[in-house]
Amino acid sequence: MKSKTVKRRAPAAKSPADELWQLRLYVMDQTPKSATAFANLKSFCENHLKGRYRIKVIDLMRQPQLAKGDQILATPTVVRKLPKPVRTIIGNLSNTESVLVGLDLRASG
Protein backbone atom coordinates (compact mmCIF):
# COMPACT_ATOMS: atom_id res chain seq x y z
CA MET A 1 0.00 0.00 0.00
CA LYS A 2 2.64 2.40 1.00
CA SER A 3 4.83 1.50 -1.95
CA LYS A 4 1.86 1.87 -4.21
CA THR A 5 1.26 5.42 -3.10
CA VAL A 6 4.92 6.22 -3.45
CA LYS A 7 4.89 4.90 -6.93
CA ARG A 8 1.71 6.52 -8.04
CA ARG A 9 1.10 10.03 -6.93
CA ALA A 10 -0.84 10.70 -10.06
CA PRO A 11 -3.86 12.97 -9.59
CA ALA A 12 -6.00 10.63 -11.62
CA ALA A 13 -6.09 8.14 -8.80
CA LYS A 14 -9.57 7.29 -7.62
CA SER A 15 -8.88 5.79 -4.22
CA PRO A 16 -9.15 8.26 -1.32
CA ALA A 17 -5.85 6.99 -0.11
CA ASP A 18 -4.26 8.21 -3.30
CA GLU A 19 -5.58 11.74 -3.14
CA LEU A 20 -3.92 14.73 -1.68
CA TRP A 21 -5.02 15.18 1.88
CA GLN A 22 -5.86 18.63 3.09
CA LEU A 23 -5.91 18.84 6.84
CA ARG A 24 -6.61 21.79 9.05
CA LEU A 25 -5.50 21.89 12.61
CA TYR A 26 -7.33 24.40 14.74
CA VAL A 27 -5.49 25.36 17.90
CA MET A 28 -5.81 27.96 20.54
CA ASP A 29 -2.63 29.96 20.94
CA GLN A 30 0.91 28.58 20.79
CA THR A 31 0.62 26.51 23.90
CA PRO A 32 2.31 23.20 24.74
CA LYS A 33 -1.10 21.60 24.17
CA SER A 34 -1.20 22.97 20.68
CA ALA A 35 2.35 21.88 20.05
CA THR A 36 1.55 18.36 21.20
CA ALA A 37 -1.40 18.16 18.88
CA PHE A 38 0.64 19.41 15.95
CA ALA A 39 3.44 16.96 16.69
CA ASN A 40 0.98 14.09 16.94
CA LEU A 41 -0.69 15.00 13.69
CA LYS A 42 2.59 15.45 11.93
CA SER A 43 3.95 12.10 13.02
CA PHE A 44 0.67 10.42 12.15
CA CYS A 45 0.69 11.87 8.67
CA GLU A 46 4.33 10.95 8.17
CA ASN A 47 3.46 7.41 9.08
CA HIS A 48 0.30 7.04 7.04
CA LEU A 49 0.16 9.73 4.39
CA LYS A 50 3.72 10.49 3.66
CA GLY A 51 4.18 12.95 0.88
CA ARG A 52 0.50 13.50 0.08
CA TYR A 53 -0.80 15.62 2.86
CA ARG A 54 -0.88 19.25 3.63
CA ILE A 55 -1.48 20.62 7.12
CA LYS A 56 -2.76 24.12 7.68
CA VAL A 57 -2.56 25.29 11.26
CA ILE A 58 -5.10 27.90 12.29
CA ASP A 59 -4.62 29.77 15.51
CA LEU A 60 -8.04 30.83 16.70
CA MET A 61 -6.48 33.33 19.03
CA ARG A 62 -5.46 35.30 15.96
CA GLN A 63 -8.28 34.39 13.61
CA PRO A 64 -11.37 33.80 15.76
CA GLN A 65 -13.69 34.43 12.84
CA LEU A 66 -12.53 31.19 11.22
CA ALA A 67 -13.99 29.04 13.97
CA LYS A 68 -17.51 29.45 12.68
CA GLY A 69 -16.84 28.10 9.21
CA ASP A 70 -15.76 24.65 10.25
CA GLN A 71 -18.08 24.51 13.29
CA ILE A 72 -15.17 24.43 15.70
CA LEU A 73 -16.09 24.05 19.33
CA ALA A 74 -13.22 22.16 20.79
CA THR A 75 -9.53 22.76 20.50
CA PRO A 76 -7.46 21.21 19.21
CA THR A 77 -9.53 20.03 16.26
CA VAL A 78 -8.39 18.46 13.04
CA VAL A 79 -10.64 18.81 10.04
CA ARG A 80 -10.08 16.74 6.97
CA LYS A 81 -11.22 19.03 4.19
CA LEU A 82 -10.11 16.65 1.46
CA PRO A 83 -10.74 13.97 0.47
CA LYS A 84 -14.47 14.28 0.95
CA PRO A 85 -16.43 13.77 3.12
CA VAL A 86 -15.26 16.17 5.75
CA ARG A 87 -14.16 14.43 8.91
CA THR A 88 -13.44 15.93 12.27
CA ILE A 89 -11.27 14.76 15.10
CA ILE A 90 -11.18 16.58 18.37
CA GLY A 91 -8.45 16.18 20.94
CA ASN A 92 -4.66 16.23 20.99
CA LEU A 93 -4.54 13.09 18.81
CA SER A 94 -2.69 11.12 21.45
CA ASN A 95 -4.78 8.07 20.67
CA THR A 96 -3.55 6.91 17.25
CA GLU A 97 -6.20 4.24 16.93
CA SER A 98 -9.03 6.71 17.16
CA VAL A 99 -7.29 9.05 14.74
CA LEU A 100 -7.23 6.22 12.25
CA VAL A 101 -10.94 5.71 12.76
CA GLY A 102 -11.62 9.39 12.67
CA LEU A 103 -9.78 9.94 9.40
CA ASP A 104 -11.30 6.84 7.92
CA LEU A 105 -7.91 5.27 7.28
CA ARG A 106 -8.48 2.12 9.19
CA ALA A 107 -10.00 0.09 6.42
CA SER A 108 -7.40 0.95 3.86
CA GLY A 109 -4.49 1.23 6.27
Partner: peptide, 26 residues
Protein backbone atom coordinates in the same frame (compact mmCIF):
# COMPACT_ATOMS: atom_id res chain seq x y z
CA UNK B 1 -25.35 28.46 14.77
CA UNK B 2 -23.29 25.79 16.47
CA UNK B 3 -23.66 22.33 15.15
CA UNK B 4 -21.74 19.14 15.68
CA UNK B 5 -22.75 15.88 14.11
CA UNK B 6 -21.80 13.16 16.51
CA UNK B 7 -21.20 10.67 13.71
CA UNK B 8 -18.71 12.98 12.00
CA UNK B 9 -16.68 13.65 15.08
CA UNK B 10 -14.02 11.42 16.48
CA UNK B 11 -12.43 12.00 19.81
CA UNK B 12 -8.76 11.43 20.33
CA UNK B 13 -7.05 12.52 23.47
CA UNK B 14 -7.59 15.61 25.54
CA UNK B 15 -9.29 18.75 24.40
CA UNK B 16 -11.13 21.76 25.71
CA UNK B 17 -13.91 23.95 24.39
CA UNK B 18 -11.82 26.98 23.61
CA UNK B 19 -13.35 26.96 20.16
CA UNK B 20 -16.73 27.71 21.67
CA UNK B 21 -15.28 30.44 23.83
CA UNK B 22 -13.53 31.96 20.87
CA UNK B 23 -16.66 31.98 18.78
CA UNK B 24 -18.75 33.45 21.54
CA UNK B 25 -16.09 35.97 22.40
CA UNK B 26 -15.71 36.95 18.77
Amino acid sequence: YVHIERSEVQESGEYDLEGLFVRLGH
